[in-house]
Design a protein around this nucleic acid. Sequence first.
DNA 1: CGCTTAATGCAAATCCTTTGCGTTAAGAAT
DNA 2: ATTCTTAACGCAAAGGATTTGCATTAAGCG
Lengths: 185, 185
Amino acid sequence: MAVKERIRVGGRSARIQQAVHDAVRKLSTPATRNQITVPQIAAAAGVTPSTIYRRWGDLQSVLADVALARLRPISDPDDTGAVETDLRAFIEQYAEEMSSPVGRALLRDGTSEVAAGQISVCCSYTNDHLTTLTERARARGETPFDAEEVIDHVVAPIVYRILVSQETPTPAYCRRLLDRIYPPT
Amino acid sequence: MAVKERIRVGGRSARIQQAVHDAVRKLSTPATRNQITVPQIAAAAGVTPSTIYRRWGDLQSVLADVALARLRPISDPDDTGAVETDLRAFIEQYAEEMSSPVGRALLRDGTSEVAAGQISVCCSYTNDHLTTLTERARARGETPFDAEEVIDHVVAPIVYRILVSQETPTPAYCRRLLDRIYPPT
DNA sequence: CGCTTAATGCAAATCCTTTGCGTTAAGAAT
DNA sequence: ATTCTTAACGCAAAGGATTTGCATTAAGCG
């Protein structure tokens, strides 16, 4: 179930959302992560379970929401001065972030939105970041990379390893993937 | 939770397993897929819910078990006589199968297996199939493809689309990916 | 300041899940 | 074939989770 759009952004509503997010983070130790329940979160956040059910729908959506909020800070990839190094830096950071237990959980929660055919937000974040890099490149007068190709042949393999085959993508592995986009001279 | 190994394979145990599988399939219309409950399955299968909980642990595991049983028939990729067409046929079938609600659910269930560092079953199926194809190629005296490269640059993008960006990988898209392994002459 | 209404709290009702215990039937031994 | 052992099952009660109706609170607005 999707998270409700919040018409009212200020005051109590925002406070409760914050309290719930904090509660989830506090309860999200690696050991207990799979046993979190809505009533637990509610108790830790000082609200009633029904509030959470009404606003988020189910546990999965709460976790996904928190996961997304937590991914947002990556938003601004470092500006290294050149598009190739920008992309390499971003991908390395992305792989490291997503490989961690937290990142992995975030990835899982972010992709487990079940309901409608709405686009996964954690996917559009990645798209946004890549777009930022290409625009930056264009502003510099550089030839930008093909974002779709990077998604298919760099991001996708990294995510596949993390999510499916349960291997950790090493920096060396990431570099090898990137060498397909920017062949070493 | 993993499905219990069944020590007793015949008789009542097998009958119930079959009944539960049939019940899930019968209840798995695209519309109702997300609202199936264990008690529903139990009722349709003519058993008590506690039986299902004890044997499978939770709803997720039941669905995963059924999904796996349903995907097993893919096991033997068609033999088209040449390694390239073998791979192309397999990938196309794989993409189609995994794009379906059932396949998608399997991928999800496969990745949501949290417990130990055990390798995901649906991942090892894929590995097995690719190994089958490479061995077949070798037996024919052909040069086999690099399985890891196929995973990274063909399978991974397909899975990423299904799982993360929620697009359907079209046959044309799959062919384009495969053209990187076998460039069109 | 008062009005309107979305969001929350509370509590009851419903449904899902777990668990203890007696029963059934599969598989092995006689 | 019969008996024995025990895994798997059914039943029912207990324990949580989820849903829902209704009263209350507090945002946002004129």
